[in-house]
Design a protein around this nucleic acid. Sequence first.
DNA 1: ATGATTCTACCTATCAGTAGATAGGCAAAA
DNA 2: TTTTGCCTATCTACTGATAGGTAGAATCAT
Lengths: 186, 186
Amino acid sequence: MTDTTKLDTRQAILDAGQAVVQARGYNALSFRELAKTVGIKSASIHYHFPTKGDLGAALAKRYTDGAAKAFEHFLAVAPDAATRMGLYTGVFRAALVNDNRMCLVGIMAAEKADMPAEVMVEVERFIALNVAWLTQVLDLTGPEADQKALAVLSAINGAQLLARGGGDVAIYDRTIAAYRAAGLFP
Amino acid sequence: MTDTTKLDTRQAILDAGQAVVQARGYNALSFRELAKTVGIKSASIHYHFPTKGDLGAALAKRYTDGAAKAFEHFLAVAPDAATRMGLYTGVFRAALVNDNRMCLVGIMAAEKADMPAEVMVEVERFIALNVAWLTQVLDLTGPEADQKALAVLSAINGAQLLARGGGDVAIYDRTIAAYRAAGLFP
DNA sequence: ATGATTCTACCTATCAGTAGATAGGCAAAA
DNA sequence: TTTTGCCTATCTACTGATAGGTAGAATCAT
């Protein structure tokens, strides 16, 4: 019982919530199931996150913030575009390996019609962050730079989506290899 | 009340069901809401489709069968790969234009963890059908032919997923254009 | 330093709403 | 006379959300 207990519960809720969303989607996120996982009662989740929309937005925000830090790290440790893209595609790969999960934002985009507006705001922020990073790493210029970057993000998300459907990470690996071979990214 | 009434109800259920799944996902598919749309009671849906899994599988099967017919048609009316691919990507585009919907199978793949096994079987069949058609149209050969075809399907699905998130068909169009420019397909 | 107050982080109990599914009935058609 | 295609009514399970209570920690005034 250290003085970090209060933060720990909130973190535990977010951790468990992220796992559920990435594995089964936002609609499958249940306060009761979440509470059972964390070890508290469902009413206590509402104390930390008044509505489900608040929880979803917090999840997306934390996810995007984490991605931003990882992207900075990739720039620091990898010198060239190919290595950086290897690290980047590796993030999406890791989600598949870890319990066949999807990118939190990818699965939220699929459920767009049922998502509260405050969640979609964070989803858009994640996409913008990825586009900006890819534009920089791939040294894209001109009026179509953002579109090229979004195409790369789209392709990788699609690869994750279908590989997940097949339940085999090797599908993802081979699709990424096909993208590289086609020259979509280095 | 013609003698086609019995078939009409079943068709109406499937039509309404497909619209809901493509717009909001399999989890959002509700017997009560479906019944209200069709104009019957929810218990009557169970008469035609005993369980939700049966309905989901029927939806995926009909969707795949429809795609198979469309693919044959594309081969018949379009002579070259580029035109055929234009028709193919147009199908995914049409879903977006029509109430910002997604490919039925794409959204089902995203919800994989909650899908009954009988539905996933049909999802796999749809993917196999697309891969086979793309392999033929793109004249892919060698041991990596299927992988290249799956990469094309993945990329297009990803484009649809993110364009839908952005709520703008132009995003899809530009992403497809970027794929073509990169040489992913003609 | 201490007593009073307020805040934190949970709890129990409950609400209205919806989920899929089933039992049994009924009118019309085959 | 049986089958078809629907109906009403009901079941259990679960959803997010709220009301109200409480032990303990923190903060405040004296």
